[in-house]
């Protein structure tokens, strides 16, 4: 996958954008890039990049996030340092956009500048096991809605098909066909297929461009 200055992750609500953004940031940092992550979610007050604040800090990855993220203040607020996404050319910027077209509205203000600079990757995160993106047609529809709202065309797809904690290697293998069909339907290249790190050995060699991830938010129940 190309490493452009700005990597934007958008997609259907609950498709896994936040988790991928954080994992991508760790991976890029390991490759030696200076990385900053930005949370532009204006839809969901829960499950934000703020959950990973400590881990990001430890890894030396600055987090641009609304002061109200993960708080009881349920506002669609954007972070103060918003314009660093455009102006801070120091290293890589990974941006987590809120779900669906409603989330992508936050992107609109940057679309012009990002197109002008032309050093961005706009990634559609897909999960074929989610109810409203179960096939390529539905997924393409949501893609179009997001593009219309954000005024920025997608450049690639990350297949993040999973069933949460119950995901097996077979589930990921079965999702490849869906991801390829979605790629054909949308005309976008399939950049990566994500997999929980512990399933990586079972799938290496069977799927191209695998990306091992750890879940950032652990559960006590």
């Amino acid at each position: 996958m190309r490493t452009r200055r700005v990597t934007l992750l958008a997609g259907h609500y609950g498709s896994g954008k936040t988790n991928i953004a954080v994992n991508l940031a760790f991976a890029r940092k390991k490759e030696g890039f200076e990385v900053t992550v930005a949370d532009l979610d204006i839809v969901n007050p829960y499950y934000r990049m703020k959950d990973s604040e400590e881990a990001l800090k430890e890894a030396g990855i600055p987090l641009i996030s609304s002061a109200f993220a993960n708080s009881n203040v349920d506002l669609p607020a954007l972070p103060q340092e918003l314009y660093r996404i455009i102006d801070d050319k120091n290293g890589q910027m990974i941006v987590d956009i809120g779900g669906d077209d409603r989330g992508a509205y936050a992107l609109g203000r940057f679309a012009g500048a990002l197109k002008k600079e032309n050093d961005y990757e706009m990634i559609l995160v897909i999960n074929g096991y989610r109810p409203l993106t179960g096939d390529e047609k539905e997924t393409a529809q949501i893609m179009k809605e997001i593009e219309d709202a954000g005024h920025l065309p997608f450049t690639g797809i990350i297949n993040n098909s999973n069933l949460g904690n119950e995901t097996t290697a077979e589930d990921i293998l079965a999702s490849v066909r869906y991801a390829e069909k979605t790629s054909r339907e949308t005309g976008l290249p399939l950049l990566l297929t994500t997999v929980r790190a512990d399933l990586l050995p079972q799938l290496t060699g069977k799927i191209d461009n695998l990306f091992g991830m750890t879940l950032q938010k652990s559960r006590l129940w």
Binding site: G14, Y129, P131, G164, S175
Partner: peptide
Amino acid sequence: MKDKVLMKGNEAIAE
């Protein structure tokens, strides 16, 4: 793909 879907509780109620 499976007949299982990954859902939020709220979505499961609605569907």
